Simulated assay, not measured.
Amino acid sequence: IGLGSTVVGALVGLLGFGLFLWLYQFRVFDFGEQWWTVWWAWPLCFVLDDLAYYWSHRFGHRVRWFWASHVNHHSSQHYNLSTALRQSWTGFLTLGFVFTLPLVLLGFHPVMIAICGGFNLIYQFWIHTEAIDRMPRW
């Protein structure tokens, strides 16, 4: 399941990234041509990306449309690292990426969002194990 969701996620992710690049021209704020050098934008982007992930995940538990795709993730008897990879191949059909769209429209470059999202995923990966008793939650 993890391999399939990774392959489908990569293909759909490229389409989503293209959409984000296109929407970036309609941003409200502009961090300049050298957006990667604006140091304070990175932690802000990380926190806002985590907030977007929170709402996406909350909808995954509260809204049937999202739960239909998210339920595979919670089908394990044990809480281990493979549980983090147990993702549906149909996650893109829920259109959960719309929770991240406001970041693009606020002016965060899609590459910055992708990098911050990657760090967020690393954190999420490690909280899906019984080996770590409790991770800090900010």
Score class of each variant (00 low, 15 high):
residue 16 G to W: 06
residue 5 S to T: 12
residue 7 V to L: 14
residue 7 V to D: 00
residue 23 L to V: 03
residue 73 H to F: 11
residue 49 D to T: 13
residue 65 W to E: 07
residue 47 V to H: 02
residue 65 W to F: 15
residue 63 V to Q: 05
residue 73 H to Q: 08
residue 31 F to V: 08
residue 13 G to T: 07
residue 51 L to E: 00
residue 21 L to S: 07
residue 10 A to Q: 07
residue 57 H to L: 09
residue 63 V to S: 02
residue 4 G to P: 00
residue 53 Y to F: 15
residue 58 R to T: 09
residue 48 L to Y: 04
residue 73 H to L: 12
residue 44 L to K: 03
residue 80 N to C: 04
residue 45 C to N: 13
residue 55 W to H: 12
residue 75 S to K: 12
residue 6 T to V: 13
residue 57 H to K: 05
residue 69 S to Q: 12
residue 22 W to N: 05
residue 70 H to G: 03
residue 45 C to P: 12
residue 41 A to W: 10
residue 21 L to C: 14
residue 69 S to I: 09
residue 33 E to A: 13
residue 33 E to N: 13
residue 22 W to K: 11
residue 3 L to R: 11
residue 15 L to Q: 04
residue 53 Y to E: 06
residue 66 F to N: 03
residue 67 W to T: 05
residue 64 R to P: 00
residue 55 W to T: 06
residue 13 G to K: 10
residue 10 A to N: 09
residue 34 Q to W: 04
residue 79 Y to E: 03
residue 13 G to I: 06
residue 4 G to M: 11
residue 72 N to T: 08
residue 32 G to A: 02
residue 46 F to V: 00
residue 79 Y to T: 04
residue 84 A to P: 00
residue 30 D to S: 15
residue 34 Q to E: 13
residue 82 S to L: 12
residue 26 F to Y: 15
residue 39 W to G: 00
residue 54 Y to H: 10
residue 48 L to V: 01
residue 53 Y to D: 08
residue 38 V to L: 07
residue 20 F to M: 14
residue 40 W to H: 09
residue 57 H to R: 05
residue 58 R to Y: 13
residue 69 S to A: 15
residue 69 S to M: 14
residue 33 E to Q: 14
residue 35 W to K: 05
residue 20 F to I: 01
residue 62 R to W: 08
residue 18 G to D: 07
residue 14 L to T: 09
residue 63 V to E: 03
residue 77 Q to Y: 05
residue 50 D to S: 15
residue 39 W to L: 12
residue 63 V to C: 02
residue 26 F to P: 03
residue 25 Q to R: 15
residue 78 H to T: 13
residue 37 T to Y: 02
residue 43 P to A: 00
residue 2 G to Q: 08
residue 8 V to I: 15
residue 13 G to V: 06
residue 70 H to D: 04
residue 62 R to A: 13
residue 13 G to Q: 07
residue 61 H to Y: 08
residue 46 F to Q: 01
residue 36 W to R: 03
residue 4 G to N: 10
residue 50 D to P: 02
residue 71 V to D: 04
residue 72 N to C: 07
residue 71 V to S: 05
residue 52 A to V: 06
residue 72 N to A: 08
residue 16 G to P: 00
residue 62 R to Q: 15
residue 62 R to I: 10
